[in-house]
Structure formats: structure tokens, C-alpha cells
């Protein structure tokens, strides 16, 4: 069976970049990206600002190249179709994208959360009854059923981001692409969104999430892809990627729990390797180090 997402030597350059006299390879936002994602994975995409994370997200639902134009080389195949040969509306049925700022995503033309979440499927011509049941399911999945009659712009940032997520879910995509979904949120709003991400993953969604909050990502991701200058420079399980010291070369900080493990190993207090990624693992490491009274 073919993979759900395949990028095969994909290169992408935004329009106008070739005319700016830059070095040829610097003008590309994605450079020779080869990546396959299987159904059910939760892939964390990390890297500096400008490393290509958002461009990669836009490539998956066809906004690159259909909306942004520019030059796309190589192949991007999503759910069996090359993104070049299918339209954005056709791709949207497979891929839902959630952007950083819920303000940019909410339509601004609806009066209630329920109407907002119904907006997408209604515009796809989904029958009324089907829209209603999709909206109910999406609100429940995003954990905002009790907000259904509220005005979207009277909600907190975390709640708005979950409304935007529910609107994406109501389109019933099989792939969710989340581009820094928590960057505008307070810590609790951010926790709420990560909790929903974990739940969506357990219920079978394939999820790609670009995020700087590495501690939160380490808790939920099954795989981490590191981008630098438009290239995939590291790719593997969170443990394989986040505990490697070369991560710092790409200006990505490991989880602080991992840094703690590395620092204790440097002091000779524990053997190197098996660094913790999460709060639970860090607590266990320190307890093991000091005996049971800190369990």
C-alpha cells in the first residue's frame, strides 16, 4: 500500500524569488525534501523560523502551488493524488490545515460557534442533516460542545483556536496539518489544544504539527522531522532526534528534561544515553539517581 503522504525530491520557490539575484539554492523555500508519512503518524515538524515549516504545511493542502504559484519541482502525492493534478477543494477533503492565528482562520461572518463550524461543509454542498451531525461530532472532538451558541469572537484565544480546529474537523479530512497552532495561546489554552491533538491522534487521524513548544511536542509526537534552510536534516522517533546533541546545530533546543539528563551525564552522575524526554521520564530519572524517597 502506498503512503498517505509522499514528497519525492520536492523543491519549492515562491514567485519572484528567482529574480532577486540570490544564489540559486538560497532562493528555494523547500530544497530536495523527500518524506513519506504513513496513516496514523503524529509528526512534529521543528526548525528555526524561515526553515520551511509553514511552506511544507501549505504544500500538503495544495495552496502551494495552486494559490501561491511559484515553482514546484519533484512530486507531492497526498492520499494517492499528485497535488499538482488535483484542485485545492478536492485536496481539502483529505487535508485540513489549521493556521497559527485563529483570527485569520475564522470567517468573521457567523454569529455562533455552531454556524462557524458548519460553514465549510455547507459550502461543499454537504446535505443539511449530514452537516448537523458532522458539526456535533467536530464540536465534541474539539471539546467545545458547550460553546456552540456563543459568538466566536467573544471566546478566549484557546477557545477560538479550538473553534478553528472544529471547523477543520467538520470537513472530515483524514490528515490534519497544524501550523504552530498554539503560538498565540496562553499556557492553558496551549495545553487544551495539545490535549485535543493527542485525542485526535488516538482516534486515528494522521497529524503533522509545526511547533516551537518542544516539551509539548515530545509528549505526543510519534516522529520528529527537523527542517533547516528548507531541507530535512533529521528525521526519526522523538527519542532518536531530540536526544541527539547535533539538534543544537539546527538551532532547535531539546526538551529541558533532556538537557537536564545530558547535564547530569556530563557531571558523571548518570551514564550517557537514555535521556528523558518528558516530565514523567525526568522524574523517574532523578528518582532512580537519588533512591526511592523522591519517587
Amino acid at each position: 500500500m502506498s503512503s498517505l503522504i509522499t514528497l519525492d525530491h520536492a523543491w519549492y520557490r515562491y514567485p519572484g524569488r528567482e529574480a532577486e539575484g540570490e544564489a540559486e539554492s538560497d532562493s528555494w523555500a523547500l530544497r530536495d525534501v523527500s518524506l513519506t508519512v504513513e496513516s496514523g503518524e503524529l509528526v512534529g515538524i521543528v526548525g528555526r523560523n524561515g526553515a520551511g515549516k509553514s511552506t511544507l504545511c501549505l504544500t500538503l493542502n495544495g495552496l502551494v502551488p495552486h494559490f501561491f504559484h511559484g515553482d514546484l519541482k519533484g512530486d507531492v502525492v497526498v492520499a494517492g493524488s499528485s497535488t499538482r493534478s488535483v484542485t485545492v477543494p478536492a485536496l481539502i477533503k483529505h487535508v485540513g490545515v489549521l493556521f497559527q492565528n485563529p483570527f485569520e482562520q475564522l470567517t468573521g461572518v457567523t454569529d455562533t460557534v455552531r454556524e462557524e463550524v458548519a460553514f465549510g461543509p455547507e459550502n461543499l454542498g454537504v446535505p443539511r442533516d449530514e452537516v448537523e451531525s458532522r458539526v456535533d461530532r467536530a464540536l465534541a472532538s474539539a471539546g467545545i460542545d458547550r460553546l456552540s451558541e456563543r459568538h466566536p469572537f467573544e471566546l478566549s484565544g484557546g477557545q477560538q483556536q479550538r473553534v478553528a480546529l472544529a471547523a477543520v474537523l467538520a470537513m472530515e479530512p483524514s490528515i490534519l496539518v497544524l501550523d504552530e497552532p498554539t503560538s498565540q495561546l496562553d499556557p492553558v489554552g496551549s495545553d487544551e489544544v495539545f490535549e485535543v491533538i493527542g485525542r485526535m491522534h488516538r482516534s486515528g487521524y494522521t497529524i503533522l504539527v509545526a511547533e516551537h513548544k518542544i516539551e509539548a511536542l515530545a509528549e505526543v509526537a510519534t516522529r520528529i522531522v527537523v527542517l533547516a534552510h528548507g531541507k530535512v536534516v533529521m528525521d526519526g522517533s522523538p527519542r532518536q532526534v531530540l536526544t541527539k546533541r547535533e539538534l543544537l546545530e539546527f538551532d532547535v533546543q531539546p526538551p529541558r528534561y533532556t538537557t537536564l539528563g545530558q547535564r547530569l551525564a556530563d557531571r558523571g552522575l548518570r551514564s550517557k544515553g537514555e535521556e528523558p524526554l518528558t516530565l514523567d521520564e525526568a522524574a523517574r530519572m532523578v528518582s532512580d539517581l537519588l533512591g526511592q524517597d523522591h519517587a
Binding site: 496562553d186 499556557p187 492553558v188 495545553d191 516539551e215 526538551p255 529541558r256 528534561y257 537536564l260 516530565l279 525526568a282 522524574a283 532523578v286 528518582s287 523522591h294
Partner: peptide
């Protein structure tokens, strides 16, 4: 709705 930083949470856990 404020959460301590990661090392704060770890020291509370310990």
C-alpha cells in the same frame, strides 16, 4: 490558569 515552567513542575513532582 498559570503553569510553572518545566523545571518547576519537575521539582514539584519530586
Amino acid at each position: 490558569y498559570v503553569k510553572p515552567p518545566s523545571m518547576g513542575r519537575l521539582s514539584q513532582r519530586l
